[in-house]
Amino acid sequence: MRRVLIAMLLLMPVTFLISPAFTAMEKEMSIQVDRAQLRSTPAYYGSVVTTVNYADRLKIIDSKGAWVKAATASNNATGWIHISALTSTKLAPKSGGKNAPTSVSAGELSAAEKGFTEQIEQAYRQKNKAIDFTWVDKMEQIEISPRQSAAFLKEGRIEPAAGGEQ
C-alpha cells in the first residue's frame, strides 16, 4: 500500500506534464534560431509552408512527438516545426534583423541574450588576432536548401524508413 502511494506521488508531477501532451506548454512560443521552416507534415521531409525568423511569435495548435503545429502571428500560415526551434521565452528581435524594433530596452532582453553574442566574439578576436575566422565564415556560407536536400535524396534513391519517427 505504502509503495503504491509513493509511486502515485512520484507520478503526479509527471502526469501533470504529459497528460494531455503539452498542456503545460505555452500557447505562444518564440523562434530561438536565426531562421526555420514551418512544414506541411511533422517530418523533416515535409514540404515547406513558410519561413520564420528569430523572435517570431507562434501560436501553438497541436503536437506530435517532437513536432509542434503552429501558426504565425503575422500571416496566419500554419505548419509543423521541430521543438528544438522554439522557446517559451519572449525574445527581442535582433537589430538589423527582419523584425527589428527601433530600440530594445535592457529589461526586454533575457539574461542569456546579453551573454555570449557577437559583441563577445569581437572582443575575443581583438585579443586573439592569430585565431583566423575566415574559413568559419566560409563554411557557414555552404547552405543546402530543403529543395536541394530532397533532390539529393531522390537522386540517390534514399527513402525514409517506415516508422522512423523523429
Partner: peptide, 9 residues
C-alpha cells in the same frame, strides 16, 4: 541553459 545563439558563438 545557454541559448542556441550563445552556443553558436
Amino acid at each position: 541553459e545557454f541559448t542556441p545563439e550563445n552556443e553558436y558563438y
